[in-house]
Amino acid sequence: MEQPSRLELVDSLRGYALFGLFLVHSVELFELYWAHPTPSAVHDWVFGLFAGKAFALFALCFGLSFFIIMDRAAQRGVDFSARFAWRLAILFVFGILHGLVYRGDILQVLAPMGLLLLLFHRIRSRSALLLIAALCFAEIPLLIHAWCALAGAAWARQLPHFFTDPSLTILANGSLSEAFRANLVDGALAKWWFYIETGRLTEIAGLFVIGLLLGRSGFFAAPDRFVRQRRVVLAIAIASWVALYFLGPICIESAGRVGDSGGAMRRNVEWAFESWSALAAMTIQVVLFIELYQTAAQPILKLLAPVGRMTLSLYIGQSLVFVPLYYGFGLGMHAWISQAEALAMGVIAFAVQIPLARLWFRYFLYGPLEWLWRALTNTTLAIPFVRRA
């Protein structure tokens, strides 16, 4: 029994998202860079290309995958809503376990936020969904926070909660058990506060909506139908990014000079502009990826498809390999490795993952964790795993 037909374009795009996310994690030394940050050109370039963009692309693909799952179930005459909620609960458990090793895990965030998709799925009006997405992308909570800080509200002028995270020192120097405990409590709280206070949660919700709408429209299933629309979107995204690139610093500096808000107003305005800039940059990357996919570059981009088919396994596997290299309970490489060396290690490691993923799918239908996720979702082990000759 073979898998249902897949969208190789989506798999390839998901593989590209994993590549970008992995390079960010590599340059971050899986978050230990922030224990002793040292600015570098490598950091600036990698973060400029992928930080916030790869994560946003993952959220977009999450919404798209939701549509594909629900649509295929509907074609079989099945309401998959309750089963999808159970599927998210399983993913959340994966995230909790992964978070013990790597506190930057995003599965813990995507899984509970994914419940919103069940609500969005019931809204059939495209205009209503676009309005919801626009409101999410507007980063209204950040702007309200900035205004309240300017108005003198004490709560709005307090330092962000994730600024006072005590767990990094433990990860850099502590034992494995100490790292687990730090990640389970302090690390998890710092992560959630980061997503809440920087506007990432509302951004995720908006990206879920856009992924759902793109799935409904057939944007990835029939890319040839959307050539003109893609190029209009590309032009708008480039113009938006350029405008934000020049206007952002002016607005941020102006916010820093207005009133005595302890830097709170400036921070929130800066986070809002960073979110808008990342969304514009992600849109540019997605459209250019699709455009290249329609050219002679397609065979090269298709090399990412096997990686994209097992992102869950590789995403968690990357942490299991690299966290012990950088953390105090392992080799402690964070103390001496440069970001350039960490980037080189990341590029080589991902280059190795591409043929390994391709080889894996010669013998198996799913990645190992993808199969386990599917089996638990359907509460049966009768899900085929080994590919028949």
Rank of each mutant, 00 (worst) to 15 (best):
residue 114 G to S: 02
residue 353 Q to N: 08
residue 105 D to E: 07
residue 158 Q to E: 12
residue 216 R to N: 07
residue 357 A to E: 02
residue 376 L to Q: 07
residue 30 F to N: 00
residue 143 L to W: 08
residue 241 W to G: 15
residue 305 A to T: 07
residue 161 H to E: 15
residue 189 L to M: 14
residue 277 S to E: 11
residue 137 F to G: 06
residue 93 V to Y: 06
residue 144 I to R: 13
residue 221 A to I: 10
residue 231 R to L: 15
residue 338 S to I: 06
residue 284 I to E: 08
residue 345 M to Q: 10
residue 362 R to V: 08
residue 355 P to W: 03
residue 165 D to T: 10
residue 192 W to G: 05
residue 259 G to V: 03
residue 100 L to S: 09
residue 21 L to C: 04
residue 32 L to V: 00
residue 187 G to A: 10
residue 279 L to P: 14
residue 56 A to F: 05
residue 168 L to K: 01
residue 35 A to C: 11
residue 237 A to N: 03
residue 229 Q to T: 12
residue 383 I to H: 06
residue 89 A to S: 09
residue 274 E to V: 15
residue 330 G to P: 05
residue 31 E to L: 14
residue 245 Y to D: 14
residue 374 R to G: 04
residue 179 A to D: 09
residue 211 G to Y: 04
residue 195 Y to T: 12
residue 273 F to N: 05
residue 216 R to Y: 05
residue 304 L to D: 06
residue 150 L to C: 05
residue 139 E to R: 08
residue 164 T to D: 15
residue 257 R to A: 11
residue 180 F to G: 11
residue 378 N to P: 12
residue 86 W to P: 05
residue 24 V to I: 05
residue 368 P to K: 04
residue 204 I to K: 06
residue 380 T to P: 04
residue 327 Y to T: 03
residue 318 Q to N: 09
residue 136 C to Q: 01
residue 168 L to S: 07
residue 41 A to T: 10
residue 210 I to N: 02
residue 140 I to T: 14
residue 5 S to L: 15
residue 147 W to S: 13
residue 367 G to F: 03
residue 155 W to E: 11
residue 189 L to Q: 10
residue 33 Y to F: 09
residue 377 T to C: 12
residue 361 F to A: 12
residue 211 G to L: 03
residue 363 Y to R: 13
residue 78 V to L: 14
residue 339 Q to A: 04
residue 249 P to S: 01
residue 232 V to H: 10
residue 19 F to H: 04
residue 356 L to W: 00
residue 91 L to C: 06
residue 364 F to K: 11
residue 15 G to W: 00
residue 67 F to L: 10
residue 154 A to Y: 08
residue 123 I to V: 13
residue 167 S to A: 11
residue 206 G to C: 06
residue 202 T to N: 13
residue 109 V to A: 07
residue 4 P to D: 12
residue 148 C to M: 15
residue 41 A to I: 11
residue 202 T to D: 14
residue 342 A to D: 01
residue 171 L to H: 12
residue 103 R to P: 12
residue 93 V to R: 02
residue 316 I to D: 01
residue 68 I to M: 09
residue 107 L to Q: 09
residue 94 F to A: 03
residue 252 I to L: 02
residue 309 R to E: 07
residue 19 F to K: 01
residue 184 L to W: 09
residue 127 S to E: 13
residue 171 L to P: 06
